[in-house]
């Protein structure tokens, strides 16, 4: 089991719980387990089999973008933190400015 910390904006899915338990050997598995209990949450985290551009997920303090993305291993007792990016700015073609080609939605 891992403890998953849920950000304010996603607590509508978790009955206002700030932290929930989920099981799975990888981040992808943990997210599937979350989805089984809190339907709808997966779509807010994942798009086309990748973590959404403006969602950060950390396993034991490491941003999973640097540790294998959704395939990152989650050990028993691990802490998974989900934080939406704090981002924005004047540009409408924002993603060009951010140097990515993801879509915001």
């Amino acid at each position: 089991m891992a403890e998953v910390r849920i950000p304010t904006i996603l607590r509508t899915y978790t009955n206002d719980q700030r932290a929930v338990e989920a099981s799975g050997g990888t981040v992808a598995d943990v997210i599937d387990d979350l989805e089984a209990n809190y339907a709808g949450i997966k779509d807010r985290l994942v798009e086309a089999d990748e973590v959404r551009r403006f969602v950060n997920i950390y396993v034991d303090d490491e941003d999973i973008r640097f540790t294998g993305g959704l395939a990152t291993a989650v050990k028993d007792g691990a802490t998974v933190v989900i934080l939406p990016a704090v981002a924005g700015g004047a540009a409408d073609p924002v993603l060009r400015a951010a140097g990515t080609c993801a879509s915001t939605r």
Binding site: N56, Y58, A85, V86, A87, G89, A90, A98
Partner: peptide, 23 residues
């Protein structure tokens, strides 16, 4: 005050490590 990791005149984003520490 946070560092704008995008260092851009038209975009801002907190660095992901800074974000985790802040929260």
């Amino acid at each position: 005050p946070m560092l704008n990791a995008a260092m851009s005149p038209t975009f801002y984003e907190f660095d992901s490590g800074d974000l985790l520490r802040l929260y």
